[in-house]
Write a protein that binds this DNA or RNA. Structure first.
Lengths: 237, 237
DNA sequence: AAAATCGCTCAGAATCTTTTCAGGATGGGA
DNA sequence: TCCCATCCTGAAAAGATTCTGAGCGATTTT
């Protein structure tokens, strides 16, 4: 069964080209010019995914998002932000969008996001209000909900970025996370700065979670590839 | 190896200064005066990124963009627009390019955008379920996701190139991989160096995975052809 | 206001990898 | 057996990557 995707954008050309691309890829696309229209449409014919432009006249994106999530059960929403505006994207994600993408974007990239979100939301029905679970890696416990980290029993306070790095690595515990991946996931795809930031944050992290930061046991670098977080049990005597 | 960037602009000075900056930063740049030329060139030598001027005579930017995206698989494109004015006209069609930048621009800013686009298009988020699986060959276990190798229970850390060689051989375990194949798959088709590098890496590898590097049991050379990786169970006493 | 924190950049140093080089071994066909 | 392309070896050069310490704004805390 073809997934139904609702495209909400006030720009006609945009609507047309997005829905063209989607249909070409086997989805069923419907379009709406405004959030109001979109809501009406969605109530009649529940979409599996909504592509929502933020810069809508009338009801704005944020508000629309709230309505969608109240009225339509469990609909993933991808924000499409009109300009490079970090604020939008961050706010959108905190408000509950499942993903975002900023214009201009490559149609293939859009498609990739659509697929990813559909896959992610399809499998494990995420209970609303369910908190992300803490991740344990050896004697490390990283709790994203509480934003806390425990190392060998001790609680740690980490700045936001450091936490994000650690959490990202923890999600792939045991596996290497490539430098680029790390940058994309922690700093976002729009990040224009130097990749060296990673070194610095890793260093600070190590100063906090490693016994001997010079000889990391938990947060290892895989030269030429990236970093990985591995379990480390305290050696017992 | 060095990423290939295709610069399309009808202004010679522009072409030269952009490609100079790119090459100076370690990229391989080629240039084209027109969209037609660019297409021809791109078909012969697939670029990793295209910097496309919008205000081209002849085939215009949008049309060129469409051609590129149809004909060249998955090529990210950055629009370079001559004026704010022009940009507005395409902002209506924000679908298509991966990024844009307006003239005049600071070369460093251009570079930052190039890097960012390459980064975000390079790494396809490694979905947890889609990690490459470890390969077992005798008492060797090669796990690309963790970037680890186990020989008879012992964990090994291998540098990137060595790992790549081993992994490539492991993928064809039991069969010979020709020298040329190995070079292509590990070093890429555009490798200009001496094929001797392979000997050296094989040697490093043998020193790590063979009990007696002089008498290889796992990584065998097939004279005149290449190398092969074969299972080797430790003889038990 | 001063002080502390955070995120980032920078440049030089330290480290590790990769390649090259030159000579020596080796093995298989003539 | 002899020869020669093919491989191997050790060492050194060349190249990349990562680590460090320091410093700078911006923001928040005191």
């Amino acid at each position: 069964m073809a997934k139904h995707i609702l495209v909400v954008d006030d720009d006609a050309l945009m609507r047309r080209s997005i829905s063209f691309k989607l249909e070409q890829s086997g989805y069923r696309a419907s379009t709406a010019v405004s959030a109001e229209d979109a809501l009406a449409l969605a109530r009649r014919d529940r979409p599996d995914l909504i592509l929502l432009d933020i810069g809508l006249p009338g009801m704005d994106g944020m508000e629309a998002l709230r309505h969608f999530q109240n009225e339509i059960e469990n609909v993933p929403v991808i924000f499409v932000s009109a300009r490079r505006r970090e604020l939008d994207t961050i706010l959108g994600l905190e408000l509950g969008a499942d993903d975002y993408i900023t214009k201009p974007f490559n149609p293939d990239v859009l498609l990739a996001h659509v697929k990813a979100v559909l896959r992610r939301t399809a499998a494990p029905a995420p209970e609303p209000g369910e908190r992300p679970l803490p991740i344990t890696v050896g004697d490390l416990i990283i709790d994203p909900a509480a934003h806390t980290v425990h190392v060998a029993g001790q609680q740690l306070d980490l700045p936001a970025k450091e936490f994000a790095v650690l959490y990202t690595l923890a999600q792939e515990a045991g596996y290497v996370v490539a430098m680029d991946d790390l940058l994309n996931r922690v700093w976002g795809a729009e990040f224009l700065g130097e990749p060296q930031v990673v070194y610095v944050h890793v260093r600070w992290l190590r100063e906090k979670i490693e016994e001997d930061p010079q000889k990391p046991q938990r947060l290892l670098t895989v030269r030429g590839v990236g970093y990985k977080l591995v379990p480390h049990e305290v050696s017992k005597e």
